[in-house]
């Protein structure tokens, strides 16, 4: 069997508008999205609504997705790279119910991918939209808690504070000690928070073919990176930006050059490293790739509910 099939749409609930939000709210969000695209990396304030899931659990991403999604879209939702984490399941079910859209776990089949903390390993293509859930959209927030001050810094393109912070890292730790939510500069103008993705994913944002939209519900900000846009991770000449690398391939699919999760196997120090991107890992196994800890009798059925193996 190849990659998981796209699920059939469920019937739309009559009680709410298509995709839950009322049309006036969608218009307001759509206007903010257009401004965000026109000013790449700039955080557009928007009148975020209360959603039927808590703030901090993806309300910004959900509002962006609800404002752009149409009946022909195919939606994928991931959290930590995985389609089957509980919050991803919950958000996917929300849209299947309120918008009646088809959902998928297959990255290439999706037209909209809503994500928390990862960018899929599969290269995104033109026509796809990647919607990020963002907790704290302001990259300068941990250096300066005041909105009035950070807004001024963006206006004046005054990012010295960020460089000082990164350089203090180097002085103290011998390296830049930021491993996720690593700040980027967009099109040479705005310093932007890529959301708490590992810095491993930062290079995927650079000149991506997909449109990238960012929604921060609690903080009421939307921002965007159009396709083919320069996204450069901040660094220094003597300390260039570098991404994490793993000493071993994925234990299940043998994949290399991908982001891995560490799984604790027992209380005696047993560890294994597996792909964080579940769809990537499953497709590779379906293609016959085998990792060190994937036994011979393992089914290649990528859609099976559990992966269970004797060590």
């Amino acid at each position: 069997m190849t990659s998981p099939a796209t699920d059939a749409p469920e019937p739309t609930l009559a009680r709410y508008n298509f995709a839950y939000l009322d049309e006036q709210t969608k218009r307001m969000i759509r206007r903010a999205i257009l401004k965000g695209i026109a000013i790449p990396g700039y955080q557009v304030p928007f009148a975020s609504r209360e959603m039927p899931m808590p703030y901090g659990w993806g309300t910004g991403g959900v509002q962006v997705t609800a404002a752009i999604i149409g009946p022909d879209d195919v939606l994928k939702v991931i959290d930590q790279g995985a389609d089957d984490t509980t919050n991803a399941v919950s958000i996917r079910a929300f849209f299947a119910r309120t918008a009646g859209v088809a959902t998928t776990t297959a990255t290439p089949e999706a037209t909209i991918i809503q994500t928390r903390h990862r960018i899929p390993e599969t290269k995104l293509r033109e026509g796809q939209v990647l919607v990020y859930q963002v907790p704290i959209p302001e990259p300068l927030r941990f250096l300066e808690p005041r909105e009035t001050e950070t807004r001024k810094m963006h206006a004046l393109e005054e990012y010295g504070l960020m460089h000082v912070k990164l350089y203090e890292d180097i002085a103290r730790n011998g390296r830049i000690a930021t491993t996720y939510a690593y700040p980027v500069k967009v099109e040479g103008r705005y310093v932007m928070d890529p959301s708490p993705t590992p810095k491993f994913d930062n290079p995927k944002m650079h000149r991506s073919e997909a449109l990238q939209l960012f929604g921060a519900g609690r903080e009421k900000r939307i921002y965007a990176i159009p396709p083919h846009t320069d996204v450069v991770s901040l660094d220094f000449e003597d300390h260039p930006f570098e991404i994490q690398s793993f000493d071993q391939p994925c234990a299940l699919c043998g994949g290399e050059g991908v982001y891995l999760d560490e799984v604790v196997l027992d209380d005696r120090g047993g560890r294994m490293f597996v792909c964080s991107d579940t769809h990537h890992c499953e497709s590779r196994r379906a293609e016959g790739h085998r990792g060190a800890l994937l036994g011979d009798e393992a089914s290649a059925d990528a859609a099976s509910a559990t992966v269970k193996e004797e060590m």
Binding site: E23, R30, P71, P227
Partner: peptide, 18 residues
């Protein structure tokens, strides 16, 4: 209104993004 606005917006969003 719901479907038309979504279709028109997506065309415009794509136009703005490209």
């Amino acid at each position: 209104p719901v479907g038309a606005a979504q279709t028109v917006f997506r065309a415009l969003m794509d136009a703005m993004a490209r």
